[in-house]
Computed example of a mutant assay.
Amino acid sequence: MKAVLMTAAGNPEVLQLQEVPKPSPQPTEILVQLKAAGINPIDTKLRQRGTFYPDKMPAIIGCDGAGIVEAIGAEVTKFRVGDEVYFCNGGLGGHQGNYAEYTTIDEKFAAKKPTSVSFAEAAAAPLVLITAWEALYDRGRLEPGEKVLIHAGAGGVGHVAIQLAKLKGAMVATTVRSSDKISFVRQLGADQVINSQQTDFVQAALNWTNGEGVGLLFDTIGGEIFSQSFPAVRVYGDIVTILEPDANTIWKVARNRNLRISLELMLTPMLQGMVEVQQYHGEILEQCASWMDRGELKIHVSHEFPLSDAAKAHQLLESGSMTGKIVLLIDN
């Protein structure tokens, strides 16, 4: 089969299209003929710095995939040949990723693809959906009627976080960095849009909440934005970040406001071999598929590339300020 191999850590040119053996499913696995693979920031970071398993090189990266079940293991009961599926699995340097024509995955970790969306939209969805779900619902304990501020609402994680927060019955404010993204996030359901290039987002959040601060702030940017966000959160409120806080972070405001700080990394179950949590991720995707098929949740794909142009897709993602997601289309 054709696959894009990461031949070494480095610039996008280390991604090379090559022929590799087609995998075979184990007893509880399904063999998926991939039709699309999502591109995520973790892919570019692994390519730049090296994978979590440096002794297993070259590697096929790419956590997100969608395709058609071509074969099933002897113990598989959840899927049949011909089923359309989507999932977040592999791609960290251990289990094979999804920049390829075929992959295998344990049946517990996959979900049936929403029937109403394309393979490209399905492949763009899993990592960002699971990340936003865990950040808002599990880490942030979001409640109906609560006010939440989501940073970078037009981005991959941000644009689904807005929708998941609205599905929970929350009031949503979001930051964007350019005026051309305002209408996009409003269409997703944002109640308040803050252009952070023109407006102090902390003051805007305080004005929106009558000086109290939001109950939950979801940080998808990191860096200085994380600590700058502390005064925008109400006393005893929550802040969840998907980035590692900087070593120089000054925590005084967070401590004085008694904030609950949570870290979100949806890759933890894969890295730790936590099968039950990975199965929970599959259940999240099942619920999100239902919402997508009811038209209550949408995935925005901004760019599509053929598998052979994986390097170009990485270059685009690294250029910054993306709206929605980038996807590789796999023609097989």
Rank of each mutant, 00 (worst) to 15 (best):
Y280F: 13
V253M: 09
W251G: 00
I261M: 12
A289F: 12
N248D: 13
I250F: 05
Y280D: 14
T268Y: 01
Q279M: 11
A247L: 13
A247H: 12
Q278P: 06
V253K: 09
K252Y: 11
A247I: 14
Q278I: 04
C288H: 04
L271V: 05
L271Y: 00
Q278M: 15
I284W: 12
Q272V: 06
N248L: 09
C288F: 14
P269N: 01
E283D: 13
S262E: 15
G282K: 01
S290C: 14
E283N: 13
L271Q: 03
Q279N: 11
I250V: 15
T249V: 14
V275W: 00
S290W: 14
G273I: 03
H281Y: 11
L265G: 06
P269A: 03
V253Q: 07
I284M: 11
Q287C: 06
V275M: 10
L259K: 00
Y280C: 03
L271I: 10
K252G: 08
M270A: 13
N248Y: 06
L263R: 01
V277M: 07
L271H: 00
E264Y: 03
E286K: 14
T268S: 08
Q287V: 10
R255Y: 10
N258K: 12
Q278F: 02
Y280L: 10
V277G: 05
Q287F: 12
L285H: 01
E276S: 13
E283I: 02
I261L: 15
A247E: 14
G282F: 03
S262K: 08
S262H: 14
A289C: 12
M274R: 09
L259G: 02
G273E: 00
L263G: 10
I284T: 11
L265K: 08
L267D: 03
R257V: 05
A254Q: 03
I261V: 05
Q272C: 08
E286H: 12
I261Q: 00
I261C: 04
M274S: 08
E283K: 15
L271G: 04
L267W: 01
V253R: 06
H281W: 07
M266Y: 02
L265Y: 09
E283A: 13
E276L: 10
E283C: 07
T268I: 11
V275P: 02
W251R: 01
C288N: 10
G282L: 03
A254W: 05
I284R: 09
M270I: 08
N256W: 06
Y280V: 09
P269T: 01
M274P: 09
E283H: 11
R257L: 07
S290Q: 15
H281F: 07
L285V: 06
Q287G: 14
V275R: 09
A254L: 03
E276R: 09
Q287E: 15
C288V: 15
P269R: 03
Q278E: 13
T249D: 02
K252F: 10
E264C: 06
M266L: 08
S262M: 15
A289W: 10
M266I: 01
M274L: 12
H281K: 03
V275I: 09
V275H: 13
E276K: 12
N256A: 11
M274Y: 10
I261W: 05
